[in-house]
Design a protein around this nucleic acid. Sequence first.
DNA 1: CCTGATGCTTCCGCAATTCAAAACCGTCTC
DNA 2: GAGACGGTTTTGAATTGCGGAAGCATCAGG
Lengths: 261, 261
Amino acid sequence: MNVVTSDGTVAKALSVLDQVTAMGRPVRMRELLETSEFPKPTLYRLLQTLTNQRMLSYDKEQQTYAPGIRLVSLAHSAWSQASLAPIAAPHISALGASLREAIHLAQLDNGQVVFVDKRQASNRFATLARTGQVAPAYCTGVGKAILAHLPKEEQAQALRQQAFLKYTDATHTSAETLLRELEQIHSEGVAFDREEHEVGIISIAAPILTDAGRVVGAVSIATATNRHTLDGLNAFRPALLDCAALIGAEAQSWQSPSVPS
Amino acid sequence: MNVVTSDGTVAKALSVLDQVTAMGRPVRMRELLETSEFPKPTLYRLLQTLTNQRMLSYDKEQQTYAPGIRLVSLAHSAWSQASLAPIAAPHISALGASLREAIHLAQLDNGQVVFVDKRQASNRFATLARTGQVAPAYCTGVGKAILAHLPKEEQAQALRQQAFLKYTDATHTSAETLLRELEQIHSEGVAFDREEHEVGIISIAAPILTDAGRVVGAVSIATATNRHTLDGLNAFRPALLDCAALIGAEAQSWQSPSVPS
DNA sequence: CCTGATGCTTCCGCAATTCAAAACCGTCTC
DNA sequence: GAGACGGTTTTGAATTGCGGAAGCATCAGG
């Protein structure tokens, strides 16, 4: 069992891909070079390869690289196979319809929370736009709900991956205080986001557990402080837990994260 | 300038990734091995690498591989940067609202059409394109609209990539007949899908052209034969062309496909 | 024009990765 | 217990990837 030995060329290529996508706009090689750990010709070759593979698209005029459309089609398969979204869809739709608030469905990936589906109460157009977005686990309702129900080993691993940046006054800034809350969440069965990620945004989240007791994701009801108080969110608790239970029952077995030490 | 020399390990890894996603369900190594061009240990190593990189997820119980959630988050960047969707969103929403039919927004990738956004008017035909889905170019409205407006060189390249499988009685089965229709589409400005991909489904599509005259995608209005006739679709032509023009105007410059010979 | 600066691209010898045959191991079946 | 089947590991050979250094464009300002 090899350990931290990041495997080969593929890893390097993907790291470059990550870097490009993270920029959030078309970038020139120069800009990447500043951040990159790779020397110029290597970076160049990797960009070439990724472009050939259509994972990146290259604008000849501007000499810029941007994520390629191939990723969109790859993600479709991933979304419809590897995510809870297809299974959960009817349930979160029902939940979203019964109470007029935003519903989020999220899963954990590499210590981060990935939103795999959303239901927006007000405008039903913005839904897909935000699917796939990532957020830190330690300061979101869904993130904490998942973390709290992770097996010890994996939880420790995940906690080590948290950055503990202070987004707001309420953000946890250390593993210790977070861990204390996680224990409480574990016993209570729901997690709250108390404006920890964004001021004015609160949520109540419940973990999605399989029969075997494994967490596979979380659902949350998110709202704004000018619409509800934290205490007010408690009213949603039964419906939320119900929804999470229904999804969990259908998500029979699920792939394990399989993260090596 | 090396030509068909598919570049290295990254290409191989991605080809395996493609193969897994194409299966549409979790697969065991054995199944992949049957189709794969790689010998067993090589395939094994590539799967390992992809799993380590979280591009695939591995179910220890079932010993199966499935697309990883990392793809979903990667795609978010791709979708919001490399696709027309963000720019086109308001326009296709408007179009979808004014007439109650399904709107599709698509782009070309490697000879295939990738649906980057859609608006469903009624829920009746949920089987239609989901975001990220791919379809052949030669037998869809959007596909033909794009092909018809491609520069000669790229068009020839794209035609070579078509499989010309006969999905229905109306499907083109050769480049010759398709090319003839493409010429007509080019002069007319819109393309029709005459149940070429699926029986009972028709559409009218318009290319999205930049100021420079480059085609960057297509919009279509799709419906069922029991709701409209092909002639009936003509009524939508002005609105569709209008929408396409608006999107094209905003899509200033766009990355070129950059596919080597 | 030249000249220097910047940033992309190519060369090329060295070395590290990748490759795949063969052997090995763990299960499941008869 | 023997045999078949899939998955995993080993290992030497060699293909590939690597990256320093040098080569080009392009664009300033002199």
